[in-house]
């Protein structure tokens, strides 16, 4: 029974973090119909920033997430301005492949600069802290990351649904031309959306660096999971992404514990294939 509770808790915590990683992707996909293939590498970049800020200045991940979020907002907005903007509308696959090129570049840039070694930030405030509930061991860094992810997801959701800028984003997603006629600067909205997508993954990466080792390939698996989460949740839907992410987190942790650790991602991706057989546009898609 405690096994079950422990596995459940792990799944929920991982799911919440996947939710924040995927929300950024989902937002970009929903508004611009672009898959940002460099999403995982943005996560990696955020983790490296958090790591180096921690090592060089001694800033704790609990604070440096603000920095990684801001840095990724900039990086992402700049990649939109420089690369993605020039690819949209040329062919359906051009933005995806261009961001794939960007991901190769970023990955190998970090490989070149920081070697392929695994680096784990040590001496953080929450390091080694574990809460015990009814026999479950909940490591504090993961708990903090997942709770914070939920908060950030709510903030993002509130921003999109309740603010004027959020309405402009929604309008742009629904009909770009009509939004332009209403006086919305869609170019700025696109930049903002790309930046926000980067900021989400930046904040998630900042927190993840407190308990996960950083290396150039770290983002690859996360970006695949994020793709599946977004497609499973139905694109553009933040609640959908969260539900799908929690589902993926649970499947991953249960399959890993009760079947075999090596099977956990097979189960995740197989679940996705099964779901799209029944609902080709995802659980919450239309």
């Amino acid at each position: 029974m405690t096994d079950f509770a422990q596995v459940l808790a792990d799944g929920l915590m991982n799911g919440a973090i996947y939710g924040l990683v995927a929300a950024g992707l989902s937002l970009i996909w929903g508004v611009m119909d672009v898959i940002n293939f460099a999403h995982g590498e943005f996560l990696m970049a955020a983790m490296y920033v958090c790591y180096w800020v921690g090592v060089l200045i001694g800033l704790d991940p609990l604070i440096s997430w603000v920095l990684t979020g801001a840095f990724l907002f900039l990086l992402s907005a700049v990649s939109y301005k420089v690369v993605v903007r020039r690819c949209i509308g040329k062919s359906a696959m051009a933005p995806l492949l261009a961001t794939f090129g960007l991901s190769i570049f970023l990955k190998n840039f970090c490989l070149n600069m920081f070697t392929p070694n695994f680096r784990l930030l040590s001496g953080t405030f929450l390091e080694g802290m574990v809460f015990n509930f009814f026999g479950m061991a909940i490591p504090a860094p993961q708990l903090a990351a997942s709770l914070f992810s939920l908060v950030m997801l709510y903030v993002l959701y509130y921003f999109v649904k309740r603010t004027r800028t959020g309405w402009a984003i929604q309008a742009t997603a629904m009909d770009k031309e009509a939004a332009e006629l209403m006086g919305i600067d869609t170019e700025r909205i696109f930049t903002l959306v790309f930046g926000l997508g980067g900021a989400c993954v930046g904040i998630a990466g900042g927190f993840m660096a407190s308990y996960l080792a950083v290396f150039p390939e770290v983002g690859t698996l996360f970006s695949l999971i994020a793709f599946v989460v977004v497609a499973l949740g139905g694109f553009g839907s933040i609640p959908g992404a969260l539900c799908a992410a929690i589902l993926i987190g649970l499947v991953e942790s249960f399959a890993g514990f009760y079947i075999a650790p090596v099977i956990k991602y097979v189960a995740v991706f197989a679940l996705y294939i099964v779901v799209i057989l029944i609902r080709p546009k995802g659980l919450f898609g239309w």
Binding site: V83, A98, G101, L102, F105, K107, F109
Partner: peptide
Amino acid sequence: SLGPGVDQMIYGLLIIFMMMRQPR
């Protein structure tokens, strides 16, 4: 001699350039 990954960086940049300039 420039260290690992430089060839792949060029490869990535080439893809980006190609997609921006002429996706066909």
